[in-house]
């Protein structure tokens, strides 16, 4: 055999081996990517199949808009839970939104640089505290405070109210929102700030008209993430919100958000017919709302990015 031919053959073989490896590795990555991609769909489909029973039994409209919750009689109206969830979420964002935004602006544009270095560990600590601890803190501090506040405002209450839940929740989501906000505002190039200043703008005008505008898509995604977290947060809210099945008429009334419903009853009340399916339906609502919210804020991000 000719040596030259042999060596060419072995080179070919070697090459084929490398190409094979290349294909193999890229297919691994593709499979992992597909798994991640499919997860939410699998979750959604699973929840849907499990709650299918109750959706078939009663109309979707009935389930979503009836406030009659009598599982023993087979009546499942989710409105009180949905309204409670909305109350708590919206209120918590209203409480922490301005705080997060202003402290992010302060940290990135007014405070000394060292402050950011101090703030980062603080934020990480806040984010890392288990939610049950926030719940306990809520019971010890916020519940009596709200009880007294309500009484002085003419709304006597036990302290276990929508407002209590919202306050605890807002403290819990501050680190997540703040972290992203700082990141987002910091990525606005300094040259843009200089451009605005050199046109005679003051610092505040620059922040308001240029920096916040430029980081608007990022700000939306920060709050989007915060809202998604708030909507699904369970334990801490459950501990302070009162858990009374009634449509809350004000912030000093107790509520019963969807996650609390699931956490309180799953595994205990399952002897009641349809209850299992009803809780799955609650989970499905959570899932759909959070997903819809994510998609909505993504759309808003893309839309506003196109405008700047």
């Amino acid at each position: 055999m000719n040596w030259k031919v042999l060596s060419i053959k072995s080179i070919r073989f070697f090459k084929v081996g490398r190409i094979l490896k290349d294909k193999l590795h890229s297919s691994w990555m593709f499979v992992s990517f597909i798994i991640v991609l499919l997860l939410p769909f699998l979750l959604g489909i699973g929840l849907f199949l499990k709650s299918n029973l109750i959706i078939k039994e009663e109309s979707l409209l009935q389930l979503l808009f009836s406030s009659q919750w009598h599982p023993m009689k087979g009546e499942f109206g989710f409105l009180p839970f949905i309204i409670s969830s909305l109350w708590v979420t919206v209120l918590s964002i209203l409480i922490c939104g301005p705080i997060c935004l202003f402290s992010a602006i302060h940290l990135t544009h007014y405070a000394k640089r060292g402050m950011l270095k101090i703030m980062h560990p603080v934020i990480d600590i806040l984010a890392g505290i288990p939610s049950v601890i926030y719940g306990v803190w809520g019971i010890i501090l916020i519940v009596p405070f709200i009880s007294r506040l309500g009484a002085s405002l003419g709304h006597p209450n036990s302290g276990y109210t929508i407002l209590t839940g919202a306050i605890v929740l807002s403290v819990m989501i501050i680190p997540f929102i703040l972290n992203i906000l700082i990141e987002v505002i910091n990525t606005v190039p300094q040259e843009l700030e200089e451009a605005s200043l050199s046109l005679g703008a003051t610092k505040w005008e620059t922040i308001k008209k240029v920096i916040l505008k430029k980081s608007f898509p990022g700000i939306i995604s920060a709050f989007g993430l915060g809202i998604s977290r708030a909507f699904g947060e369970t334990i801490a809210v459950l501990m302070v919100v009162g858990n009374v099945v009634k449509i809350p008429k004000g912030v000093f009334q107790p509520g019963y958000p969807l996650p609390s419903l699931i956490a309180n009853n799953y595994g205990e009340m399952l002897s009641i017919p349809m209850y299992d399916s009803a809780l799955m339906f609650a989970a499905l609502i959570l899932f759909v709302v959070v997903t819809a919210f994510n998609i909505g804020s993504r759309y808003l991000i893309i839309y506003s990015e196109r405008r700047i």
Partner: peptide
């Protein structure tokens, strides 16, 4: 300082149009 800066137009290395 704002009056001062208005007297001097600045053109930077690469263009940074305002987000509008």
């Amino acid at each position: 300082i704002t009056q001062l800066r208005k007297k001097m137009g600045l053109l930077s290395q690469s263009p940074y149009p305002l987000p509008m």
